[in-house]
Design a protein around this nucleic acid. Structure first.
Length: 403
RNA sequence: GUGGACGUAGUUCAGUUGGUAGAGCACCUGUUUGUGGCACAGGUUGUCGCGGGUUCGAGCCCCGUCGUCCACCCCA
């Protein structure tokens, strides 16, 4: 028997149903906010992610499915969705269009990690990217949209927000932080010491308790923002307050992808184990030009579909369609014409084996059909069918034509 | 990449100090040649993950391997 690869999962029955429900619900809401569907390739040039997500991130440095294709190109399976959408945006020269552009997507992402609860090697994200809107109103609107999606799915969450600053205020802050960290480096963990050189901001969300206690007095970016970033962040909190969305400012919230600036947010659930982030995103105003487009402000997010699978409250399944069965061999082939006709408008299940009445009733029940339609000896003789509404329990015998 | 737990029927699991497998659910049949969800009775289903070792004998003990799960890490 050939098994799926490690960290890859088949979705069937209940689960695939759930998956579709999540995607449909999120898509419906995204469209209401003006987002249009975009699909980009799963395979991309490796350089795309090195430049956008960043070489120093774990994702790029050790988790990518990367290989040389038969043409000698250095390619990889996308580890996240934003980079591909931005590449596509620039490639289609949409950066030269005066209008704002909004896209939503969903699909598989690949990261070579050790699987655990809420973490697969092939996982799925639903995401949105909004281009050309610099206003913090858009950041706010996106957060509202995500909360509406979660509300529609029946999922509770905590919202954490932070500002990562911009090219004006981030570099001086970073220098300041490196200075602080260098003084206490003896006491910091091994990983943090490495991060001081590669990506000092990441030290802030180190899980090590000793590190965290040492960081209590570290300089906070939130207190060192430039005027514009500071004004925007205050505006965002004010908008959220007015909208009645509760949130927590987490000064240690750092996105793992290098392209984020200004607003960063994460939706978290306490009910799903240690992989608690169910959605994350923020602003990435520099990414478009970083990928050779004209400077275009942008903001986006992604929801981890697997992370919310078991949290989703599905609407109750209702009886649907028709179950067709015959009680004598001769009647079986009478079913097909009826089935073909009825399939123009509804779901039809045809049982190919002639069997007893009770057995058919059970079968109709099992597929959750609304109507049980059976042909027995009498019906075959008279050119009729026996129809029962399994919900109202009403039954009747009518001609095939009338049915 | 690190650590821990676990791999037995379609599924969830039991299996005593080592003596060649069992239950619930599911499925099929019947009670009921025409009234579903319920009940009762009967029945089908196993490379005990794989490979080696110890032993008269291994589901059980030992080694290896693959896989799953959980945590670290990472992140959606």
């Amino acid at each position: 028997m050939i098994n799926p690869l490690r960290g890859m999962k088949d979705l069937t029955f209940e689960e695939s149903h759930r998956f579709n429900f999540i995607v449909e619900t999120a898509s419906t809401i995204a469209k209401r906010y003006g987002y249009g569907y975009i699909e980009t390739p799963i395979l991309e040039e490796t350089a795309l992610f090195k430049r956008s997500v960043g070489d120093s991130s774990d994702i790029v440095s050790k988790e990518m499915y990367q290989f040389e294709d038969k043409g000698g190109n250095d390619v990889c399976m996308r580890p996240e969705g934003t980079a591909g959408v931005v590449r596509s945006f620039v490639h289609a020269k949409l950066d030269r269009q005066p209008m704002k552009q909004k896209f939503y997507y969903y699909g598989p992402m690949f990261r070579y990690e050790r699987p655990q609860k809420g973490r697969l090697r092939e996982f799925h994200q639903f995401g949105c990217e909004s281009f050309g809107e610099a206003s913090v109103y858009e950041d706010f609107t996106i957060i509202i949209m995500i909360s509406q999606i979660f509300e529609a799915l029946g999922i509770g969450f905590d919202l954490q927000i932070n500002s990562l600053g911009c090219p004006t205020c981030m570099p001086p802050y970073k220098q300041n932080l490196v200075g602080f960290l260098t003084e206490i480096k003896e006491e910091l963990c091994e990983d943090c010491n490495r991060r001081i050189g590669t990506n000092p901001i990441r030290v802030l969300d180190c899980k090590n308790k000793t590190c965290q206690s040492l960081l209590v007095n570290s300089p906070k970016l939130i207190n060192n923002l430039c005027d514009e970033c500071d004004t925007d962040f205050k505006k965002l909190t004010q908008l959220l307050d007015n909208a009645g969305i509760s949130y927590e400012v987490d000064t240690n919230l750092v996105r793992g992808l290098d392209y984020y600036s200004k607003t960063a947010f994460e939706f978290v659930s306490n009910d799903i184990g240690s992989q608690s982030a169910i959605a994350g995103g923020g602003r990435y105003d520099k990414l478009v030009e970083f990928l050779d487009g004209k400077p275009t402000p942008a903001v986006g997010f992604a929801i981890g579909i697997e992370r919310i699978m078991e949290l989703v409250k599905m609407p109750e399944a209702t009886r649907e369609g028709i179950y067709l069965g015959a009680m004598t061999e001769d009647a079986v082939e009478k079913l097909f014409a009826i089935a073909t006709q009825k399939r123009k408008e509804t779901k039809v299940t045809v049982e190919y084996n002639a069997k007893g009445f009770k057995s058919h009733m059970k079968g109709a029940d099992k597929v959750n059909a609304r109507y049980a339609v059976l042909i027995g000896e009498d019906e075959l003789k008279n050119g009729t069918v026996w129809v029962k509404d399994l919900e109202s329990k009403e039954e009747k015998t009518i001609t095939v034509e009338a049915f």
